[in-house]
């Protein structure tokens, strides 16, 4: 089964990391990714730009489509990235998220089984 593993973290904290810390986290995460890729389990991975770069499109009560600056929800921790990973079952998904967590301390991981997945075309 495919799982989306969503990474949440406080943007304030992540933006305050010194460059070395950021690089170290990215290195540790890519080690986990490499292992998953070797096992043929790794799908698309993305690190999102800060929510300050986000734009939200939503409809108001009068059915007008509004373009709003900022993320959909104002939360203490923000969605900062995601991984799509093949896991046999939830146990394996939890175990994978745990590995990601070890590589990126302080982050919270939401595990969401994927109902429909389209890999799309190869984009650069």
């Amino acid at each position: 089964m495919l799982y989306a593993i969503l990474c949440y973290h406080s943007e304030d904290v992540v933006c305050s990391w010194p460059k070395e810390k950021d690089e170290q986290i990215m290195r540790q995460l890519s080690e986990v990714n490499e292992k998953l890729a070797k096992a043929g389990r790794l799908g698309p991975v993305a690190r999102l730009l800060p929510t300050t770069a986000a734009t939200t499109l939503r409809e108001n009560a009068r059915e007008e489509k509004l373009v709003i600056d900022g993320p959909f929800a104002e939360t203490k921790e923000q969605l900062l990235g995601f991984f799509v990973i093949e896991c046999a079952d939830l146990d394996e998904a939890v175990d994978t998220a745990r590995q990601l967590m070890q590589a990126n301390d302080g982050a919270t991981y939401e595990i969401r089984p994927i109902g429909y997945f389209m890999p799309g075309v190869k984009i650069t």
């Binding site: 904290v13 305050s16 810390k21 301390d105």
Partner: peptide, 15 residues
């Protein structure tokens, strides 16, 4: 989770 870098980061960003 509560290592010193994490705490320092949290203190800096909360400041």
């Amino acid at each position: 989770m509560t290592d010193l870098t994490w705490i320092n980061g949290a203190l800096t960003s909360a400041r």
